[in-house]
Design a protein around this nucleic acid. Structure first.
Lengths: 213, 213
DNA sequence: AACTCTAACTAACAATCGTTAGTTTTGTAT
DNA sequence: ATACAAAACTAACGATTGTTAGTTAGAGTT
């Protein structure tokens, strides 16, 4: 996974297509490759247990060489987290904008969570487990985005209760139990194996909304 | 929080009763105090982001002094995790032994999860987030306990479906969504504030089993 | 052929890590 | 008073951390 010039790199990287699972990174810039590699390591061991030398080893280069492409470890973490946080925020905005019934909106929240999880499962691990290791502005931003997301979800649930669509249970309990299931979805990505995404959406919506009895 | 001899320590520790939240550690051995302090730090920042010097600072001693009481950082982590893992395992055994209906057993699982979370909330943070940093036998033990716990829960759910008590949904989806809610309960401990534990149990059982509509 | 740019390299920095060895302080028991 | 044990201390170890500075190799451009 070494490369001295982009063309040469693309060639040598191309060679990996048939022997490696990382062929999907082929079209990425060197920077984004590093971020992807870091993401999988962060997911397995957590931000603080992964050294720059660990990341470099997978990239088949020396740790110092990483700094030709990124400004530091913090940049990797913050770009990972902010990317997926923005995905959630923008999807949530779309849902709010639909002005459908609260129940339909909740169903939609479950669905987009599954979609985003499939697309960004490694990023979500960092968002969930390592957000507190962000520094400065990035930390503030992520906390704010998280609060706004929760507040949006909370207001949907409250509206659902007011309009009689949802049982008058403690809204915080509802919010919490749905959200914690959705947030841990990334852990389930490999376990569910070949389970179809659309089937998963259907079942998940059913279980979370209609219960199990 | 320094102490040269146990009696003196108990006295000086006693002085803290009226000025500090840590009065509850009063009757603990020095070793268990260290473990408790480590637990709160691990919960906030994660195992790898907490140094022995951090723990020592809270204990008002030098890092090397910790080794008069514990064998190392690993011992702290493993005793934290194994303590709560055993609590879950033993409670689950009791539930299995009751031979009640599957639904009643699931309700009971939710309730004991809330109880154990209230008692061991810091330990659960480590169990959830830092189990992978265990080494050797402790790691194997915890993985095995986790698998057995999940398998027990899974078989209850399957029995519930077979006997028609539970809707014939994908059992893995049910298992996952209940378990991930329960496992993240510890995050909610401060948020829920003054919410009564028994009320929480009632609402949580209702939401997880009967759904929200 | 000479120049430029990218992306790697080597070498090293200061800081921090978990831990060990040996020593001193302190309260208790004889 | 003396001896003992508990629990702190100082000092330092080798390893690892994120990062910087300066250099080199290879490919494209003129």
């Amino acid at each position: 996974m070494k490369c001295y010039r982009l063309l040469f790199f693309e060639y040598s990287f191309y060679m990996l297509i048939y022997q490696s699972y990382i062929y999907k990174y082929m079209e990425l810039t060197r920077k984004n490759q590093i971020i992807k590699v870091a993401a999988t390591l962060f997911r397995e061991r957590g931000y603080n247990a992964v050294s720059m030398r660990d990341i470099a080893k997978v990239m088949e280069m020396k740790a110092s060489s990483l700094y030709n492409h990124i400004s530091g470890k913090q940049e990797i973490l913050s770009s990972l987290i902010i990317e997926v946080a923005q995905a959630f925020t923008s999807e949530m905005s779309k849902i709010i904008a639909t002005h459908s019934t609260a129940l339909k909106q909740i169903e939609k929240v479950v669905e987009i969570h599954i979609d985003v999880t499939v697309t960004y499962s490694e990023n979500i691990a960092s968002l969930n487990n390592d957000w507190m290791h962000l520094e400065g502005a990035a930390l503030k931003t992520v906390i704010k985005m998280r609060e706004e997301y929760e507040e949006n979800f909370r207001s949907i649930i409250k509206r659902g209760i007011q309009e009689g669509e949802i049982k008058p249970q403690h809204p915080e309990v509802i919010l919490f139990s749905i959200l914690s299931t959705l947030r841990t979805l990334y852990l389930w990505n490999e376990k569910r194996g070949k389970m179809d995404v659309n089937l998963l959406k259907k079942d998940m919506v059913a279980v979370l909304i209609k219960g199990i009895v």
